[in-house]
């Protein structure tokens, strides 16, 4: 039996993110999302994120806006002004969520052991975002251009998530290939 090898990936809590859940008609939300994050509205199951700012597609009427933590209040005010009189919902969820980063070539395999999502390179690559579950808890994750993956989950299960990711890495590769 092959010796279990730790995988080439580093799991760490992400730098603090300002997170805003925004729901409404995505086409109508696009201008204010661009003004707040500097990113274009992502397509279905896509993420437009760079340097901790951006937009992640959550569902056909929901996006997650990422801004600097200090900018959240200002962004909410800006959204409220821009969408006044228009049906929408914007909530600061920065403190309700926890974020982790997986950096390294084996990030895909570390995640793949925990979720039923199809993570083959042809199905999930840089710029792609998914909502699913990791282990027993709900999570959203997206891959940056360099291949690093950011995982977002509820803060109430942050300890579980961090240990889950670490165990997945420590247990070594599955070795299907």
């Amino acid at each position: 039996m092959a010796e279990a090898r730790a995988m080439d990936v580093v799991v760490a809590p992400a730098a603090p993110l300002g997170m805003i859940t925004l729901r409404g008609d995505l086409a109508a939300l696009a201008p204010v999302c661009a003004a707040v994050t500097g990113a274009a509205m992502p397509g279905v199951r896509k993420a437009e994120v760079s340097g901790g700012r951006g937009i992640v597609w959550m569902s056909s009427d929901e996006v997650l806006l990422l801004v600097a933590p200090a900018d959240v209040a200002g962004a909410l005010a800006q959204i409220g002004t821009a969408l006044a009189g228009q049906h929408h919902l914007a909530v600061d969820v920065s403190d309700a969520r926890a974020a982790f980063t997986l950096t390294g070539p084996a990030a895909r395999e570390a995640l793949g052991k925990l979720t039923p999502t199809d993570l083959r390179p042809t199905a999930f690559g840089p710029g792609d975002a998914r909502r699913s579950h990791l282990g027993q808890v709900a999570a959203a994750f997206w891959m940056a251009q360099g291949g690093a993956v950011t995982v977002v989950c509820f803060r109430s299960v942050a300890d579980y998530m961090l240990e889950l990711l670490r165990v997945s890495v420590a247990a070594g590769p599955v070795g299907y290939a």
Partner: peptide, 12 residues
């Protein structure tokens, strides 16, 4: 049919 992915039973 909404988000276009194949969802496993545990996600549903």
């Amino acid at each position: 049919p909404h988000c276009g992915t194949l969802a496993a039973e545990t996600e549903l």
